[in-house]
């Protein structure tokens, strides 16, 4: 199957590969996987707690070209968005941007799940932090 040029571009020059400090209270980590193809995707966001803006996003994906491209694109989009804006990113946006064929749609779903998981991890941390502040 032929990949679109955009997929190839992200695959050959993935943006924001790497990892952020998992123990940082401002970092949210999302780890998701697609068992039927054996993909795993880790996506992390670093949020400015004052503004709620995502200042950094990193990913590492083991999987096919479309899964790598989907997560690479996702981190690109996450930069500069607020947490709530980030939650609006839909897998269909990724499908359209990368012209993913129907058999690869699940890769974009994985990226959407990863964003949601990372943000929910960040929110959970933020909630425990404010609890800690309140009780101290």
């Amino acid at each position: 199957m032929a990949y679109s040029n955009k997929v190839l571009d992200h695959y050959n020059n993935p943006r924001n590969v790497g990892s952020l400090d998992k123990s940082d209270p401002n970092v949210g980590t999302g780890m998701v996987g697609a068992p039927e193809c054996g993909d795993v995707m880790k996506l992390q966001v670093k949020v400015n707690p004052e503004t709620g803006v995502i200042e950094d996003a990193k990913f590492k994906t083991f999987g096919c070209g479309s899964a790598i491209a989907s997560s690479s694109l996702a981190t690109e989009w996450l930069h500069g968005k607020t947490v709530d804006e980030a939650l609006q990113i839909k897998n269909t946006d990724i499908v359209n941007e990368l012209s993913l064929p129907p058999v690869k749609i699940h890769c974009s779903v994985l990226a959407e799940d990863a964003i949601k998981a990372a943000i929910s991890d960040y929110k959970k941390k933020a909630a425990t932090k404010s609890e800690a502040v309140a009780s101290s």
């Binding site: 780890m31 998701v32 996987g33 697609a34 068992p35 039927e36 795993v40 880790k42 590492k60 083991f62 699940h106 779903v109 994985l110 799940d113 998981a117």
Partner: peptide, 25 residues
């Protein structure tokens, strides 16, 4: 079987697979 979302996969398994992949890389 074909349409599982990641919520069906235990997080420990994902962590384990991720680490194994990292080591392999």
């Amino acid at each position: 079987v074909g349409e599982q979302r990641s919520k069906d996969v235990p997080p420990e398994l994902l962590e384990e697979v991720f680490e194994l992949n990292m080591a392999l890389e």
